[in-house]
Design a protein around this nucleic acid. Structure first.
Lengths: 339, 339
DNA sequence: CTGAAAGCGCTTACAG
DNA sequence: CTGAAAGCGCTTACAG
């Protein structure tokens, strides 16, 4: 009959007839352990099914073995892809990944920052996904002493992986302008805490500038990264009486929603309105959505790797690095010359 | 100058002029602490920014404060929704949620079971998402001593929340049969470790049985829960020379893929082929996909609640409960009478 | 109500 | 190479 309680190092010591510290050393393959002892200990530990209780090992300094991924929301396509890719890398490096979704809610976000001090006890590092931070928040993050890396952020004092969001948005907008459109609407995520929005809007604006056009406030509408939000935003735009000939959505899911709303209002794409998104979601090909493709899983995996490296040499001073991955304009059937 | 090292209970004791155990009690709001002491301790702790180091508190028995969600994959729609809904509930109950994706890979799955003993040290419980378990795995799960709850599983010795998958598949199939189709193809996830497949296939078969039809092996093809897998599966079916007049896909994403493949092969939906899925994905309305709607976030949240309750009274013997949520057939434009 | 003492499971100097 | 002792930060009986 096996004991109902978990085996302790004490049990292994007794069974192997060795001292508790010899067992400790043997199990961790430290020097100064004879081969015979090594074997005795291994045997006893196996028989008892003994595993060192992580929490008891140097409770004071100790690493937790966990890393947190924090995302503005976890349900949209971008985040689900990035999270799984990152989880794979972290897992392979021996870390548990704890998932923290801010659920697009300000209250949850505040809660996160309020709890940061506690969180710092429970994880060794943070992987931030496109979080739009105010200076105070950056400071709080740095002060908590955790290793940090991020995806899709700008000017942060830690390693970051992203695309050139400004350029990507410029590409999309430029494509529309090149097709003769000048009444451009934007589905922007400006009221959401998504860090990629700022550079994307900048890119949109720059493209207009280059054509001596200005951003029309009535044609800017907020949409979260989901189909429903995109639909709602486009419907609002139409109900408002706006009549753009082309729309740039900050992500493909919002673009899908826009297509839906346009159809509901009897507007034909691309005949009446051209639509372009960003991401290259797996549905985009099927729907013929023009878009700017970005490597999502790669960004998550890359940033996760940087975080792990950071944790490996935590002593050496570190110069934050910023890595930009390529994007590619994909012209499909939702964009067409203005006529 | 604040000390660079984290404050310990010792520091709080010194600063407040009280003993270490009084501090411990005060901080946890235990009885037998005078109000004055309570205040002194609170003040000192605040000044020092002291937080009890979780790892040092009863390292032996201790709860970890973490719960793991394990999913066959984390990228598909169903899982992303269920995971976020569950994460919210777990978070509100004070747990960190560690995410474990099996990434649709057998090697990762085996790794998970091999590591179960270690995992049991790092979390207090498991929320299993539609995992298709062999008896040995169920036994291993029970043996690891963790609290467990699940979504979308059958006959498991722990709390489970699901839909009536057999009935849902029956509804979808019955809908097709009622439309006069009898050459039915199924995109099944039979080679994937998804627990919902078994009852769904049963429901499919039962509907055929009721119409004195039999399942044609050539019309059964495997597809994972993704658009690409659905497309590949449907393309394979067509390439194989099969010519079903209707297809039932085990989830909407696979159905989207099927629509894509059908179009690539010049087949028109629903004129030549009817297609029905399952889920009611946000894109389904837009695409006019007929489907069987199921409440996904609700299942995740419900199961998470059951797990938390389980953890609350871990002493009392527990009769596993099984909860079935409602589904609803939604007829749209991808299904039509055979002609 | 309060604190000295022992203990949780493990690790780290330090003697031998 | 090996083990007795002290220690990690916190909690839990147990005296007072």
């Amino acid at each position: 009959m096996v004991s109902t309680h978990r085996a302790t190092i004490q049990d292994v010591a007794v069974l192997s007839g060795l001292s508790i510290c010899t067992v400790s050393r043997a199990l961790r393959h430290l020097p100064n352990v004879s081969e015979r002892e090594q074997e005795q200990v291994a045997g006893a530990a196996a028989k008892l099914g003994y595993k060192a209780l992580a929490a008891a090992s140097r409770p004071e300094g100790g690493r937790t073995g966990s890393l947190a991924i924090v995302a503005p929301t976890a349900t949209s396509w971008f985040f689900a892809q990035a999270v799984e890719a990152a989880e794979e890398v972290l897992g392979d490096s021996g870390y548990d990944t704890v998932l923290i979704s801010l659920r697009n809610q300000d209250s949850v976000r505040r809660q996160f920052f309020a709890d940061l001090g506690n969180l710092a006890q429970r994880v060794d590092g943070l992987l931030l996904l496109t979080m739009d931070l105010v200076p105070g928040e950056v400071a709080a993050l740095e002060a908590c002493g955790l290793a940090i890396a991020s995806v899709g952020m700008e000017n942060v004092p830690w390693d970051n992986v992203a695309i050139d969001d400004e350029h990507a948005a410029w590409q999309a907008t430029q494509h529309l302008l090149g097709l003769g459109h000048w009444d451009l609407a934007v589905l922007s995520s400006n009221e959401h805490p998504v860090a990629t929005e700022t550079p994307r809007f900048r890119g949109f604006k720059r493209a207009l500038d280059e054509h001596h056009l200005t951003v029309h406030p009535d044609l800017v509408v907020c949409a979260g990264p989901s189909i429903d939000d995109g639909r709602r935003a486009m419907a609002e735009l139409i109900a408002r009486g706006a009549s753009p000939t082309a729309v740039f959505a900050h992500c493909d899911e919002a673009a899908f929603g826009a297509l839906k709303a346009l159809r509901e209002y009897g507007l034909s794409v691309p005949k009446n309105v051209s639509v372009i998104g960003m991401d290259n979601h797996p549905m985009s090909g099927f729907l013929g959505l023009s878009t700017v493709a970005q490597p999502v899983a790669d960004q998550g995996a890359f940033a996760a790797n940087l975080l792990c490296e950071r944790l490996l040499n935590t002593e050496t001073p570190h110069q934050p690095s910023n890595h930009l991955l390529d994007t590619k304009l994909i012209e499909r059937k939702t964009t067409r010359h203005k006529r």
